[in-house]
């Protein structure tokens, strides 16, 4: 469902950040993307979320070449993705409910459906009952779970997480990873960028390692 075919990303001031990257992910697969900082992990994820376009090669998502995605198509492609960030990227002045509901409202769902889905999503990450809280009153682990609930509320086929456990202690990290495993088990493809080697080794999923913009092990 996700194919990188000889992808190179070049920035004018920094040169090639990604060089000739090729790999594939199947539906329902879970993989870690790792490498030293500056190896190109974030850039690779940005190509999938079409925050950047690649310079050469192609990125295919569900058979669609993202290089050819027109500006007005991008929102609709992103609705099929669940994006998770190290800094959670929650709206601090909105309740947990409103944060999770945002993708649904954007997609034009009605009130009843929004309520139902948000509750289901919050239930899945174990935050049911905290809908009315504001993000700042939650712990880091809880905030990240709100971020995850928001990412999965639209039922995406691919979840992309950029250092989701980067700000969490080991215990919270494994909780979050456990959540990802649950989504993977129901058929969602999950790609997690992390440099938490312990976690990677313990869980034993496929690992994509980037080194200075090149894919080392696949």
């Amino acid at each position: 469902m996700l194919i990188f075919d000889k992808v190179t990303k070049n920035y004018q001031n920094t040169g090639d950040v990604l060089q000739n990257i090729s790999f594939q992910m199947l539906r329902g697969e879970m993989a870690f993307l790792t490498g030293h900082s500056g190896a190109g992990k974030s850039t690779l994820l940005k190509l999938i979320a079409i925050m950047e376009y690649c310079t050469r090669g192609q990125v295919l998502l569900n058979g669609r070449n993202l290089n050819h995605a027109k500006e007005h198509h991008i929102p609709y492609i992103r609705r099929k993705l669940g994006l998770i960030f190290q800094d959670y990227k929650l709206l601090q002045d909105r309740t947990v409910f409103d944060n999770v509901a945002l993708p649904l409202i954007i997609s034009g769902y009605g009130n009843q459906e929004v309520k139902r889905r948000v509750r289901a999503s919050l239930d899945k990450v174990g935050l049911l009952g905290k809908e009315k809280k504001y993000p700042f009153s939650l712990s880091g682990g809880e905030q990240q779970r709100v971020g995850i609930a928001r990412a999965v509320v639209n039922k995406p086929s691919l979840i992309i997480a950029d250092e989701p456990t980067g700000s969490l202690d080991p215990e919270l990290s494994s909780e979050v990873m456990h959540l990802f495993e649950q989504f993977q088990q129901v058929g969602v493809t999950v790609l997690i960028a992390t440099h938490d080697i312990n976690l990677i080794n313990r869980l034993g999923y496929r690992v994509l390692t980037l080194d200075h913009g090149q894919l080392v092990v696949s």
């Binding site: 992103r78 990227k89 945002l102 954007i106 639209n154």
Partner: peptide
């Protein structure tokens, strides 16, 4: 700014 960027990332159209 944050609100706009987050909305953009979760698939909001410019119209929205």
């Amino acid at each position: 700014r944050d609100e706009v960027l987050i909305a953009k990332l979760v698939g909001a159209t410019y119209a929205f």
